[in-house]
Lab assay of single mutants.
Amino acid sequence: LQLFIKTLTGKTSTVEMEPSDTIENLKAKIQDKEGIPPDQQRLIFAGKQLEDGRTLSDYNIQKESTLHLVL
Rank of each mutant, 00 (worst) to 15 (best):
L71T: 10
L3Q: 02
I44W: 15
I23N: 00
K27A: 01
K29Q: 06
E16Y: 15
D52W: 03
T14C: 08
D52N: 11
L26R: 00
I61N: 02
T66D: 03
R42D: 06
I5Y: 08
I44E: 08
L1S: 04
L43T: 00
Q49L: 15
V15K: 01
T12W: 12
T22F: 08
G35S: 05
G35F: 04
E34V: 14
L56I: 09
A46E: 14
K11F: 10
P37K: 06
I23G: 01
D58W: 13
K27N: 01
E24R: 14
L50W: 00
I44T: 08
I23H: 01
I36F: 11
I23K: 01
S20I: 05
S20E: 11
K33Y: 09
Q41W: 07
E64N: 15
V70I: 13
H68Y: 15
D39R: 12
D21R: 03
Q49E: 15
E18G: 08
A28F: 11
Q40S: 08
I44Y: 15
I61A: 02
S65P: 03
T7S: 11
E18H: 14
Q40V: 10
T55R: 11
R54K: 14
E51T: 06
K27S: 01
T12L: 12
Q2I: 15
A28T: 09
Q62S: 12
F4V: 11
E34I: 15
L1R: 03
D32R: 12
L3H: 02
L50A: 02
I23P: 01
I30C: 00
G10T: 03
E51V: 07
L67E: 01
L26A: 01
D52S: 07
I23T: 03
D21S: 09
L69M: 07
D52M: 06
P37M: 06
L1H: 04
L69E: 00
E18W: 13
P37G: 05
D52I: 06
Q2T: 15
D21T: 05
T7H: 14
S20K: 08
S13K: 07
D32N: 10
Q49F: 14
Q40I: 11
D32C: 07
E64V: 06
G10R: 04
E64T: 08
E51I: 08
T22R: 07
D21C: 04
E34H: 14
A46T: 05
Y59S: 03
P37D: 07
T9M: 11
K63D: 15
A28Y: 11
F45D: 01
E24H: 11
N25Y: 13
R42K: 12
A28E: 09
D58R: 01
M17C: 11
D32P: 02
T22W: 04
E24D: 09
S20C: 07
K48E: 10
Y59R: 00
G53K: 11
T9P: 06
K27E: 00
G10M: 03
M17Q: 03
L3R: 01
N60L: 07
K6C: 11
S20V: 05
I44Q: 05
P37R: 09
K6T: 12
Q40W: 10
V15D: 01
D21E: 08
V70C: 07
V15E: 02
T22V: 05
P19R: 09
Q49T: 14
Q41M: 15
D32T: 11
G10A: 03
A46L: 13
H68T: 14
D39L: 08
